[in-house]
Simulated scan of single mutants.
Amino acid sequence: MESKYDSFDNKGLKILVHASAFFMPFLVPFIIYLVVADAAVKRVAVQAILFQVVMGILITISIVLSIILIGIPFLIIFGLMTIIIPIMGIIKTLSGETYNYPIVGRWF
């Protein structure tokens, strides 16, 4: 369980993991997972990687299904989720709350 009074370094690393979805969604969380010893930061990094993998699979399936026009709404929804969910993680982390990614939050 994460303390309300996390050190700034840990909070900053968690924000970096969430924000990396916009510039390096796999590399930054992977590096942080390997380098950092804090279990809470590692958990956020693994969740971020798993979320990006799942969203990539869902978007790929939606692209394939958009050939028959069924996948277009899913493509829009999953595309928006890949933008909105990391922003929600950043906001929750800034306010000192624990954030679990939807879909993969309880896997790890």
Rank of each mutant, 00 (worst) to 15 (best):
residue 19 A to M: 15
residue 34 L to I: 06
residue 38 D to M: 03
residue 21 A to I: 07
residue 8 F to L: 12
residue 47 Q to V: 03
residue 81 M to T: 04
residue 41 V to K: 02
residue 86 P to S: 06
residue 33 Y to N: 11
residue 99 Y to G: 01
residue 78 F to P: 00
residue 24 M to R: 04
residue 79 G to W: 00
residue 4 K to F: 05
residue 34 L to D: 05
residue 61 I to W: 00
residue 97 E to N: 10
residue 27 L to W: 15
residue 59 I to N: 00
residue 107 W to P: 06
residue 43 R to T: 13
residue 76 I to V: 15
residue 15 I to K: 03
residue 9 D to R: 04
residue 42 K to S: 10
residue 55 M to C: 02
residue 81 M to N: 07
residue 96 G to W: 10
residue 98 T to F: 03
residue 79 G to F: 02
residue 90 I to Q: 05
residue 57 I to P: 03
residue 62 S to F: 01
residue 88 M to S: 01
residue 105 G to I: 01
residue 62 S to H: 08
residue 88 M to K: 10
residue 23 F to T: 09
residue 17 V to F: 12
residue 92 K to C: 04
residue 33 Y to V: 02
residue 31 I to S: 14
residue 16 L to M: 12
residue 54 V to F: 00
residue 4 K to H: 15
residue 63 I to H: 01
residue 71 G to W: 04
residue 88 M to E: 06
residue 33 Y to T: 14
residue 4 K to C: 06
residue 54 V to M: 09
residue 94 L to A: 08
residue 96 G to L: 07
residue 4 K to T: 13
residue 15 I to V: 15
residue 4 K to D: 09
residue 1 M to T: 14
residue 20 S to Q: 03
residue 14 K to R: 14
residue 85 I to A: 00
residue 87 I to M: 02
residue 57 I to E: 14
residue 26 F to V: 11
residue 107 W to N: 05
residue 29 P to E: 02
residue 106 R to Q: 13
residue 60 T to P: 04
residue 19 A to S: 15
residue 75 L to Y: 01
residue 67 I to P: 04
residue 70 I to D: 05
residue 76 I to M: 12
residue 86 P to A: 00
residue 102 P to F: 00
residue 1 M to D: 15
residue 36 V to N: 14
residue 20 S to G: 07
residue 104 V to D: 00
residue 83 I to L: 09
residue 5 Y to R: 12
residue 79 G to M: 08
residue 20 S to P: 14
residue 26 F to I: 08
residue 11 K to R: 11
residue 12 G to H: 15
residue 3 S to D: 15
residue 73 P to I: 03
residue 47 Q to E: 11
residue 62 S to L: 02
residue 37 A to Q: 15
residue 48 A to H: 13
residue 89 G to D: 00
residue 48 A to T: 08
residue 49 I to V: 10
residue 21 A to F: 03
residue 26 F to N: 10
residue 53 V to C: 09
residue 22 F to N: 10
residue 89 G to P: 14
residue 40 A to R: 13
residue 94 L to C: 14
residue 13 L to T: 00
residue 18 H to S: 07
residue 74 F to Q: 09
residue 19 A to Y: 04
residue 66 S to R: 02
residue 35 V to L: 13
residue 19 A to Q: 08
residue 86 P to E: 01
residue 31 I to N: 11
residue 1 M to V: 12
residue 78 F to Q: 00
residue 73 P to G: 02
residue 24 M to L: 13
residue 15 I to T: 13
residue 26 F to C: 13
residue 81 M to P: 11
residue 31 I to V: 11
residue 74 F to S: 13
residue 79 G to Q: 13
residue 36 V to S: 13
residue 59 I to P: 11
residue 2 E to R: 06
residue 52 Q to L: 11
residue 103 I to E: 07
residue 45 A to W: 02
residue 42 K to D: 08
residue 32 I to W: 05
residue 48 A to G: 14
residue 93 T to G: 07
residue 59 I to L: 03
residue 59 I to H: 01
residue 17 V to N: 09
residue 3 S to F: 11
residue 35 V to P: 14
residue 101 Y to N: 04
residue 44 V to Y: 12
residue 47 Q to S: 08
residue 63 I to L: 11
residue 85 I to E: 00
residue 86 P to R: 00
residue 77 I to L: 06
residue 75 L to F: 01
residue 62 S to A: 10
residue 80 L to D: 03
